[in-house]
Design a protein around this nucleic acid. Structure first.
Lengths: 168, 168
DNA sequence: ATAAACTTTCATTATTTTTTGAAAGTTTAA
DNA sequence: TTAAACTTTCAAAAAATAATGAAAGTTTAT
């Protein structure tokens, strides 16, 4: 396989994975492109390579910056803005974990906790099932949450080292 | 808050979380409804409660069965089919982890491994960056994969116990 | 001050995903 | 065997999401 072909395949694969996990395909593709680019790229580079419009490129890059995955770079004596991605996989994972936790998990946790406090008739099967199911989900969600918090703070080697020491 | 209101809020919240993570909202809502129902429900019950069409209910239930989250139940002397969900949060998490791994992670891992073997000119910055980025992602994905495999096999208390012993 | 270079916005259009509902299919009891 | 009870399918419609591109906005050099 040629490098050019491999790059396309990576961009495509990363885009597909993103879309399956609720991240817009184009955004994941732009991220993939920046991940394998040694140099920072301009909006035009990205538009051309991925055949997307200027508006789309602009908004997608802004989103990626919002996710903490991409940064702007100013080159001395140039008007254009350049964009580059952090290439460290652990940083990427932590960043995504942190953002999705904040945006999606934390609000759900808040609701689950509220709902868990509901008082009612312990004789009512509806109430009992509601209570029990919620308690189980709530406990699990709490554990996931704690693990994510640890992960977000941790160094990669320590984190996996710790996990695999037990799961060997 | 009333039980009825709390139920609606749970169904809505579960549906939103699903849609943010690439699971169709209706499917997550049907799952939520079954999670808090002490009795198995019929297609009609679900159609009415969630205001969805027969076709939608039928296909969604089939999907949920495909995910291993819901089962059919036959009641003696009745023609209708009843559906009920496993209410154990750890079973649910394991089941979802297993299915998403199989459907989404494994195929990506396969491609990443292929792409990682690419040979080329070590002097070419494009090639070097491609190689390095891919190696990092590949290693991380491998670790995630191993952890998921452990989780899928594990008992809940052992799994979290092991993790929190280290992350205390 | 102004005009070229560049970026951002957002109403409109296109694409993708989900839902509907009626018809076709299946099962069961008599 | 047949007809009622129930389930499944799938083409078409609706809804949700994403992309376009031209116009408006901003910045910088002169």
């Amino acid at each position: 396989m040629e490098l050019a072909e491999a790059k396309l395949k990576f961009i495509e694969t990363w885009g597909k994975l993103g879309s399956e996990w609720g991240i817009n395909r184009t955004m994941a593709q732009v991220h993939a492109l920046l991940l394998i680019s040694p140099e920072a790229l301009t909006t035009e580079d990205i538009m051309e390579t991925l055949s997307i419009s200027r508006g789309n490129a602009n908004m997608t890059l802004r989103d990626l910056i919002g996710w903490g995955l991409v940064e702007k770079q100013h080159k001395a004596g140039e008007r254009k803005e350049y964009f580059f991605a952090d290439k460290d996989a652990w940083n990427i994972a932590r960043q995504v974990a942190q953002e999705r936790k904040k945006r999606e998990l934390d609000p759900v946790l808040k609701v689950l906790n509220e709902l868990s406090t509901l008082k009612g008739d312990e004789k009512d099967p509806d109430f009992k099932t509601f209570k029990t199911s919620l308690a189980g989900i709530n406990k699990l969600a709490g554990n996931v949450n704690k693990t994510l918090e640890t992960m977000i703070k941790a160094e990669e080697s320590w984190f996996w080292g710790s996990i695999f020491k037990l799961f060997k």
